[in-house]
Amino acid sequence: LLRMSEPGGGFLRRNAPAEGRWHSRDVAAIAQAQGLGDAAPFFIDAGIPGTRPAAAPAAGSDGPWPRPGLTVVQFHNSHLVYVFTWWGLAAMVLGAAVLVARYELRVRARQPR
């Protein structure tokens, strides 16, 4: 899979190039930390999702690159939060509409015809 660079680090954690810790794939920073020139602004995540490579290289080895299966795609399930958010917003809009309608009815009732 072809993926674009993710500069800046994660939501709560910053990349630490001096320590070799990368919480996001910031291609430009990785290239600079490794002393590489002319790096492409994207990276390749090899392999087909859901499959395991036949012979994965051992940790720390200089096995074949790109190594498959390094990208973990995991989405947070926030559906209940979305339900409360949208129903809350809908209730506030409905409440504001009721208040405006009551105010308009009072103003019109006071005006002489």
Results as ranks from 00 to 15, higher is better:
1 L>G: 03
5 S>H: 03
11 F>C: 07
12 L>R: 10
13 R>D: 12
14 R>M: 11
18 A>Q: 07
21 R>H: 10
23 H>W: 07
23 H>S: 02
24 S>N: 05
26 D>G: 03
28 A>R: 02
29 A>W: 05
31 A>R: 06
33 A>N: 08
35 G>H: 04
37 G>E: 09
38 D>Q: 11
39 A>L: 02
39 A>Q: 00
40 A>E: 11
44 I>V: 12
45 D>L: 05
45 D>F: 08
49 P>L: 11
51 T>R: 10
53 P>Q: 13
56 A>M: 14
57 P>G: 08
57 P>K: 02
60 G>R: 04
61 S>R: 08
62 D>L: 08
64 P>R: 04
66 P>I: 00
68 P>E: 12
68 P>W: 12
69 G>K: 09
70 L>T: 15
73 V>R: 12
74 Q>G: 04
74 Q>T: 11
74 Q>S: 11
75 F>D: 14
77 N>C: 14
78 S>H: 14
82 Y>V: 13
84 F>H: 11
84 F>W: 14
84 F>Q: 08
85 T>S: 06
85 T>D: 02
87 W>S: 12
93 V>D: 03
95 G>M: 10
97 A>D: 07
99 L>F: 00
100 V>M: 04
101 A>N: 06
102 R>D: 01
102 R>H: 04
102 R>F: 06
103 Y>G: 12
105 L>G: 10
105 L>Q: 12
106 R>D: 12
106 R>H: 12
107 V>S: 06
108 R>D: 12
110 R>M: 03
111 Q>C: 08
111 Q>T: 06
111 Q>L: 14
